[in-house]
């Protein structure tokens, strides 16, 4: 493009030719601006179509009964009670496992790790794990958690699977948040006689908390929508009962029976309804999708808000 235009300008007759050249490039520039706007518009339109179609098909289904009924053979009386309870319990396990492990790994890599082979291996590993398809985690869980550990198709197995899946997200977010903390904060704390852990627990963790929170929320939002790994471990799609309550056991205050209970989650329930041939179930799928979409979008929006809010506020 450059050589061509150079040739054009040398052959053109003086100023008029150069003016034409400039005009042409300005037009091209303007056209690309238009193209970019159109691309953005297209993305918006696709999102509007996706959301709009779900809203039109699913909104009439949304009622109090939809949230308080179990799935049913009759589309009209089917609901998502077992699905949303299952989702919350699985997310609980995922968060309890992934958050401490992810933050711990991130802190280790940023603050403690020496530059050696082991550190390199861990770093390459985290990068690679982030690129492993989610269904592979499902196969890992099927072989390891379901059969080797004997957890079966339980809430614990699903929660652990999703925890491993979002671990790289939490680790990377933690590391990025820690990296923005200036060195002089650490030096100041050391100068006052702090030990390493005191520096980390009194300064590094509190200051990087907004960034870590963002990563944790984005990771959990991703885990809520993950379908493939949960299907792979063989979770049932038709669950018309709730897991045993954590508080109902008479002998002890808190029981962990629910961890090994069979379950279903929102995306699995939705997938089940999509695969039904009857049209009435597709409306249920749209309604479940709407709930799922609102859950993930609000979590993502919260994460984005936290990031923007704190990025503006923190001035080192």
């Amino acid at each position: 493009m450059i050589p061509k235009s150079l040739g054009a300008s040398s052959s053109a007759s003086g100023v008029a030719g150069i003016r034409r050249l400039i005009a042409r490039h300005k037009t091209l520039d303007w056209l690309f601006g238009l193209l970019g706007t159109l691309a953005l518009l297209l993305a918006t339109l696709v999102f509007a179509a996706l959301f709009g179609q779900m809203l039109i098909n699913g909104a009439p289904q949304l009622s109090w009964e939809f949230f308080t009924s179990f799935p049913s053979r009759r589309a009209a009386s089917a609901g998502i009670l077992s699905a949303w309870v299952g989702t919350i319990l699985v997310m609980l396990v995922t968060a309890v496992v992934a958050v401490p492990l992810g933050i711990g790994a991130g802190i280790y890599l940023e603050e403690y790790a020496r530059k050696n082979l082991l550190t390199d291996i861990i770093e390459i590993n985290v990068t690679n794990l982030a690129g492993v398809p989610s269904i592979i985690y499902g196969l890992l869980a099927l072989g390891l958690f379901v059969y080797q550990f004997g957890l079966g198709q339980s809430i614990a197995a699903a929660g652990l699977t999703l925890a491993l899946l979002i671990l790289p997200v939490v680790i990377v977010a933690t590391r990025e948040a820690i990296r923005t903390i200036p060195q002089n904060i650490r030096e100041g704390a050391y100068a006052c006689g702090s030990s390493k852990w005191q520096v980390v627990s009194h300064h590094i963790i509190p200051y990087s908390l907004p960034g870590i929170m963002t990563g944790v929320i984005i990771g959990l939002a991703r885990a809520i929508g993950e379908t493939a790994p949960i299907i792979t471990i063989g979770a049932l799609t038709f669950i018309a009962f709730l897991p045993p309550s954590p508080f109902s056991n008479a002998e002890q205050l808190i029981s962990f029976e629910w961890l090994l209970a069979p379950f279903t989650v929102m995306p699995i329930q939705m997938f089940n309804w999509i695969s039904r041939p009857e049209e009435a179930f597709q409306a249920n799928a749209a309604a479940a999708g709407l709930v799922l979409l609102l859950m993930t979008l609000s979590m993502n929006a919260l994460a984005i808000w936290i990031r923007y809010h704190f990025r503006k506020k923190i001035k080192w």
Partner: peptide, 22 residues
């Protein structure tokens, strides 16, 4: 930018529904 990030956060099953039924 945040809008595109939100698009990236939509669950894949929702995209699947969109592909099949829209």
């Amino acid at each position: 930018k945040p809008f595109l990030e939100l698009l990236g956060g939509i669950p894949t099953i929702v995209y699947g529904y969109f592909a099949l039924l829209f």
